[in-house]
């Protein structure tokens, strides 16, 4: 059952990722990107990584992609602004670079595989709800980075206000 579910979801995710690249209208690209993100989230759920699944949906499908949609709507693209069919040279480069990436990543995947199998057999991880575990770790071991991250966000907010506002000269 789980295997079938995995393949169905994987196909949906991959197909929508392909559509992101091949469709011409940006709005379609973004919508398919959201679908890709949701597909990834479901795959995470299959891996018992509920927390990452939630984050995936809230941050990527929610916040980031909505931002994309806003930008595209604000740009209000006309048919004539859309890019022409991609040039062969660019295609060639793209294919070569992607292949190079696959070749480079192959040893990485190969070295991960045993670790992943090890994790899958480790029963403790699935037994405890991992939201629980993450919360516990976040407020004990990772307390300091967690607090400093709030500082980081504060600095970013103040910074945005400084850059964004219209300055009245003193």
């Amino acid at each position: 059952m789980e295997t079938i579910l995995f393949y169905v979801l994987a196909v949906v995710t991959l197909l929508s990722a392909v559509f992101v690249i091949f469709l011409r209208r940006p709005i379609h690209n973004v919508l398919f990107m959201i679908l890709t993100m949701i597909g990834l989230a479901t795959l995470f759920i299959l891996l018992h990584a509920e927390f990452i699944a939630m984050v995936q949906i809230i941050v990527y499908a929610g916040a980031v992609m909505v931002l994309f949609l806003f930008v595209i709507m604000l740009l209000n693209l006309e048919e004539i602004d859309l890019p022409r069919e991609p040039r062969p040279l660019r295609w060639g480069f793209g294919v070569i670079l992607s292949l190079a990436l696959v070749v480079m990543l192959f040893p990485v995947f190969k070295s991960i595989a045993p670790i992943i199998n090890g994790v899958a057999q480790n029963g403790d991880l699935a037994a405890a709800s991992n939201l629980d575990l993450i919360a516990k770790e976040l407020f004990t071991t990772y307390l300091l980075p967690f607090e400093i991250a709030s500082f980081l966000l504060l600095a970013a907010i103040i910074g945005t206000v400084v850059i964004g506002r219209k300055l009245t000269k003193s």
Binding site: F151, L152, A155, I158, T160
Partner: peptide, 13 residues
Amino acid sequence: FVGLETLSIGVYV
């Protein structure tokens, strides 16, 4: 990493 980002965001602004 968190330190690096806090420093970077400040400097970008």
